[in-house]
Structures are given as C-alpha cells and as structure tokens.
C-alpha cells in the first residue's frame, strides 16, 4: 500500500474572482493526524472543501490513492473518504440511528436495503461514539456535542480510510471540545483512520496531531510537527502575535500561549 493516501497537486481555487488558494502541494500520509491551521481568511476551509470535492478547483488536482477525486464516481470516493463539514444547516428531524444509516449509502446498491453487514456496522458506529442511549433521539433535539458525535458516527459508518473534518469543535464548550478531539484521536489510533482537520485552537492542534499544516496568504507556509512549528517562532509570525512557549508539566509538550497582538 502506498504511503501517501491523499495528495494535493498544484491546487488553485477560489470563489468567483477571488483566488483563495494558489499552488498548494500537500501529501497526506496514511494513518497520521493532520491539522490545518492559519489565520482567518487564509484559505483553510477552502483547502479542506477542495480536498473533500465540495469545491471544484480552478486548476490542479486532488488524488485519493492516486485517482483524481473530481473524476472518480463520487460513491467510490465516499467508500474511502468521509467528510464532516462545518455548515450543517439542516434542521432535520431524523433520528441519530437513521443519520448513521445514511453513512452506509455509498456501500449500497440503489435497489437493495440494509444487509446484515450494514446493520452491524451502524450498531458499531453508534456504540463507538457513545451514542447508544441517544440513538432514537431526533437530531434537532441533541446538544451541540451530541450532534457532533452523531455526525462522527455517520462518518465512521462509511468505514473510511480517511476522514476530513472542518472545525469539528466550533461552538462547543471546552469539555465537549476535548471529548470530540479525544474521540477523533482514538478513532485514528484504533481504527487506523487517517485524519485531516481544520482547527482554530493551536494547542488542540498541537496536542492531537502528528503534523501541522500552516496556511497563510493562499499558500502553505510550513508543514511540520507541532514541536517544530511552535518552537521556531513561525506561529507567532503568521498569526501576528507575541507568545510565550510554556511546557506542559505532565509530558513537557509545548503550550502556545498568545499574550498580545504584535504591534
């Protein structure tokens, strides 16, 4: 099996006349956790939308196992890649279980119902995300954290090799943020799912990722391990802040504490 699962080649993308990404190259290694970070408006969300085939690029390509995702049957892509997008506007009144069952859509033929495999995978996904007690609850009656877990259950029901998440912890309180981050990290570790996510919280990104992808001004500024990026001062430059690098008393991992905006 190739080491690289998803690769972005010379990608340029944008909306209407604005070019937001300009010549992005990125190789995602199988089994690892990547966090895309960068200041507002740098193109993080645009990058993950292009990587998840939700935004057609102006030029360049996105290859999943060597195949262009914009030229592959979207169902075949969904059998390998699950996407958790940010703007979930649906006011759907379906139950958690039904939502998770939709995760099996890409693996079904249109004339066939759920087979035994589908049922056991749905059950597994619900249990794995701790949603068993809530599985008959309607989506619109869930709290923010529960809803996010339900959507993760839907994503892992796809049995993906790679999962893309756009700001999975936005609007959650700190306990639920950690809950989601730990769930994602555990899924990556135990189910061998490659993870690429857009995150706002630098320290969550540093704590849970193998690699950080720092995006700035339409380009990839640096790719590196959390230690490298925090210690070489690039984060301070890109975000225009003065920061103190503390160290976690438990495991000595670096903590990025932004003190003030750079003058």
């Amino acid at each position: 099996m190739e080491k690289t699962i998803l690769s972005v080649r010379n990608l340029c993308a944008g909306y209407k006349n604005y070019r937001i990404l300009d010549g992005i190259n990125l190789d995602i290694e199988r089994g690892k956790i990547y966090s895309i970070i960068g200041p507002n408006g740098c193109g993080k969300t645009t990058l993950i939308r292009a990587m998840s085939r939700n935004l057609r690029p102006e030029s360049g390509e996105v290859l999943l196992d060597g195949k262009d995702i914009f030229r592959t049957n979207t169902k075949l892509v969904a059998q390998k890649m699950a996407v958790l997008c940010q703007n979930d506007t649906s006011m759907s009144d379906i139950t958690v279980k039904t939502l998770v069952e939709y995760g099996r859509y890409a693996h079904k033929k249109w004339w066939a119902g759920s087979d035994g495999d589908d049922k056991s995978i749905v059950e597994w996904a619900i249990e794995r995300t701790g949603m068993t007690k809530l599985q008959n609850r309607k989506i619109n009656a869930l709290s923010g954290g529960e809803r996010q877990r339900a959507r993760i259950a839907m994503a892992i029901a796809q049995k993906p090799e790679i999962m893309l998440l756009d700001e999975p912890t936005t609007y959650l309180d700190i306990a639920h943020q950690l809950e989601i981050m730990e769930l994602v990290a555990a899924l990556s570790r135990e189910e061998r799912i490659t993870v690429v996510m857009v995150l706002h919280d630098m320290n969550h990104a540093a704590r849970y990722s193998d690699k950080l992808v720092l995006v700035n001004n339409s380009k990839i500024h640096t790719i590196g391990t959390p230690n490298e990026l925090i210690e070489n001062g690039e984060l301070e430059n890109v975000f225009c802040v003065e920061a103190e690098i503390l160290s976690d008393t438990e495991d000595n991992s670096p903590v990025f504490y932004a003190k003030r905006k750079k003058q």
Partner: peptide, 18 residues
Amino acid sequence: DKLNILVLGDDTARGLGL
C-alpha cells in the same frame, strides 16, 4: 433515500457519496 440525504445539505450529501 436520495432525497433524504440531499436534505442534509449539499456538502454532507456529497461526502456520503450522493
């Protein structure tokens, strides 16, 4: 079911393979 999935939103539906 295709319509059920479409109602979840375009990006989510595409992610599911619709």
